[in-house]
Amino acid sequence: MTGSWTAYRKRLLQARRHPLQTVLSVVILALIAWVVWSTATWLVFGADWSVVSENLPLFAVGAYPENERWRPCLWLGLLCLMTATTLLQPLMSARWRISGLALSWCWLAMLPFGLLLLAGGAGLPTVSSRDWGGLTLTVLLTGFSGLLALPLGVLLALGRRSKLTLPRHLCRFYIDGMRAVPLIAVLFFGQLLLPLFLPVDIEINRVLRAVVAFALFAAAYVAEDVRGGLQAIPSTQLEAAAALGLGPWQIQQLVVLPQALRVAVPALTNQAIGLLQNTSLMAILGLVELLGISRSLLANPAYIGRHLETYIWLAGLYWLVCTAMALMARQLERQGPSASTSAIPS
């Protein structure tokens, strides 16, 4: 700590040799001081956090029936526990460490488990998806649309590089088309127009329609990231695999995709974080996820003019979840099952 501080001061002193840099430093310091001062005075004297503190359950679970609230809360708690476990892995002694593969499977299992908890069934009373909301809905939307978008995106990326003309053009058309339209238009399509394309007697609930729209949209972006990963695989790999007598599907499945996906992980993490942030758009189309619930709260006369407190709270929440996702992705990447495969030839 002290070492970095002396180095820092040294660099500051170096920068001070230019008079312009000194002026710049002073201006920035004054700016920072002003921001810190006004924020601090506002936090102490101006802010009224009742809009947040009185509505914590709403932010967490939305309009979920009160005596069933333990279900989404249990799920959120488990997610927090999993996050902590994942992030603290490197600090734990070897005896308590869980393999990256097992952790990944646990994360994957959280999704159907969360759906079961929220929707009910298997002994629990059912709760209509209309009553889901808050952070729970935000995480659920992100999780399920990401889960659907990944395989779809991989298929699209493979299709786009296919030697066959028709699939190549179809995939290109889909990817480019989807990337050219704004997400809100796709979500609008999912909410209002999708039912028109389905048979009369089939009705899908709004949450599922949103998940489908998000997944269809995100798949196009995932496909481009995966394609970037595929391009990073040298063609000698394909030739070597073919020379060993592997079929085209085996080559993709055993040789190309594991490496390509690994290359694409950082880009895919960004997509996942973007997806989480984009679920806020459903507030415009009437779902009460995290942002939607705050909009309805702010419409309540009791909390009139409490925009800043609400938005700071929301920004903090989104920031926390996004940062946790980014850190975990880096963690899983480092611990991942394929991390050791490069050592096999020796």
Binding site: Q277, S280, L281, I284, L291, Y311, Y318, C322, T323
Partner: peptide, 8 residues
Amino acid sequence: IRQIPLLL
């Protein structure tokens, strides 16, 4: 800025 949704 990059960790906070644009809509917010």
